[in-house]
């Protein structure tokens, strides 16, 4: 049996949130939407597993998160941008967003976070989930969320502090944190 119409309507309403979370994880819009699409498809197949007393967005974020992890396993390029592609990725960002200075550096800095750090930080800082909610999405203890968020912020800040001396084209942009 296919998912009921009311469930689909809620799913449609959640798409912008899912897209934002996916975009916070991967640079490329179409790769991010692949993750969202995969999450939506999974949600439709498993709609019966959703407990209507719970928060649908949290449930969907968890599914999207797993879809992202699967995509990472398939393609390691999704999380970390290879040095030779960084300039291109940054140009792309620049072309459709107002250049607010920091934002360009952010792209470079985010590429250096581990997937665990990045996802925890985005759920808390951008999706504005509580640590308890993020823990539910990530399936880890709250204390783990707290330390991941903190380490992610420190790593981001360290990169931004030093980015003036590190030219964008400089090789060796793989993870150092």
């Amino acid at each position: 049996m296919t998912a009921p119409a009311a469930f689909r309507e809620q799913l449609l309403g959640a798409i912008p949130r899912l897209r934002r979370y996916a975009r916070s994880l991967v640079f490329d819009t179409s790769a991010a939407d692949d993750i969202v699409q995969s999450a939506l498809e999974r949600a439709l197949v498993h709609w019966r597993q959703f407990d209507p007393r719970r928060d649908l967005v949290l449930w969907l974020l968890a599914i999207a998160h797993n879809a992202w992890l699967d995509a990472l396993r398939r393609d390691r390029h999704l999380d970390v941008i290879a040095p030779e592609r960084l300039t291109e990725a940054m140009d792309r960002e620049r072309s459709h967003e107002p250049d607010v200075g920091l934002q360009i550096d952010l792209v470079a800095a985010l590429a250096r976070l581990t997937p665990d750090q990045r996802s925890a930080m985005m759920l808390v800082a951008v999706e504005q989930l509580s640590y308890a909610e993020a823990a539910e999405v990530l399936q880890v203890p709250e204390g783990t969320v707290m330390s991941r968020v903190s380490r992610a912020r420190a790593a981001l800040r360290a990169w931004l502090d030093g980015s003036g001396s590190r030219a964008a084209g400089r090789p060796g942009l793989r993870r150092v944190v």
Partner: peptide
């Protein structure tokens, strides 16, 4: 930094 992240992704919504 948090505000910059939010601002950067806000438009997606």
């Amino acid at each position: 930094d948090r505000d910059a992240l939010r601002a950067r992704l806000e438009g997606v919504l």
